[in-house]
Design a protein around this nucleic acid. Structure first.
Lengths: 144, 144
DNA sequence: ATACTAAACGATAAAAGTTATCGTTCAATA
DNA sequence: TATTGAACGATAACTTTTATCGTTTAGTAT
């Protein structure tokens, strides 16, 4: 679940058992005004205008807390490091949101619907890459 | 060494205008035996068994060359750094394989087919995250 | 309101991943 | 076989992220 726009910040914090600090609140409100997929550095630069003494570490720590709390979502659950695909067959990925394990699922096995070859704006489609995100059997058991 | 074994790789190199070096060939053949989504470090560890003097830099450089040549594919075209999603609406991503720009596309606008709530193996699906990969209008023009 | 404690903070060192530099070696070609 | 640009190895540098640690602050219990 993503941000409930109407929910006050204090409530969000109480629900997630985190303290309402000045830095955290300004960070949250700053992030809500941003668009796209900003990096921690970009968020840091923006929030520094309002709280000049804030530390980059605080930005990182709070972004993680927000993501863990479900206040914000990560753009991608894939590895941060460069990874190469060894499976030559057309396939997609199954990603566990708990343990972050990524496994392959065949294009056919996934059975996705119709695809487009063009998108509005003149984007020429080469392929679709689907992540099926959820909880793997192991993590359902171990409640990790 | 046998001529037959080296022939396909030699062809691959000639097609892409790169030299057939011992390191490159062993790297390629090692990678072809691997599964999943190995990191450069993992590839390095494996190839070192056959060419102990190989450098990690060589592994990185050649992985890039292989990816550029289309010999191998990157698992994800997303940012290497942590990114947070500012769009609260259900949406997917349109990714240009040339300039790597990532833009949002609404769930509805993408119009994807039926989704599953369970996968074989007991995986519990939360959501689908789709990357529509291709070439953006700008890169089609500028031939970048 | 005050004191106490755990959480959060800022500064910064360290770690992890990747890229750049540079002198040496080697593959392609002529 | 000689030449030359590409590729190599070693390693420094850089980027991104995490860990450490002393200080400050929010939540709460008095």
């Amino acid at each position: 679940m993503l941000v409930n726009e109407t929910k006050p910040f204090r409530e969000l914090c109480r629900e997630n058992g985190i303290a309402v600090t000045h830095q955290r609140q300004v960070l949250y409100e700053t992030m809500k005004t941003m668009h796209g997929h900003p990096s921690p550095e970009e968020v840091y630069a923006r929030v520094k205008k309002k709280v000049p003494a804030i530390s980059l570490a605080t930005v990182y720590k709070n972004i993680h807390i927000f993501v863990e709390s479900g206040v914000f979502r990560e753009v991608s659950l894939h590895h941060g490091s460069v990874r190469v695909e060894m499976n030559g067959e057309p396939h997609h990925h199954v990603v566990c949101s708990k343990c972050r394990k990524i496994t392959d699922i065949g294009e056919k096995e996934l059975g996705l619907g119709a695809k487009r070859s063009r998108l509005p704006g003149g984007f020429l489609v080469e392929r679709y890459a689907v992540d099926v995100i959820g909880v793997c059997a192991k993590c359902q058991k171990s409640d990790c």
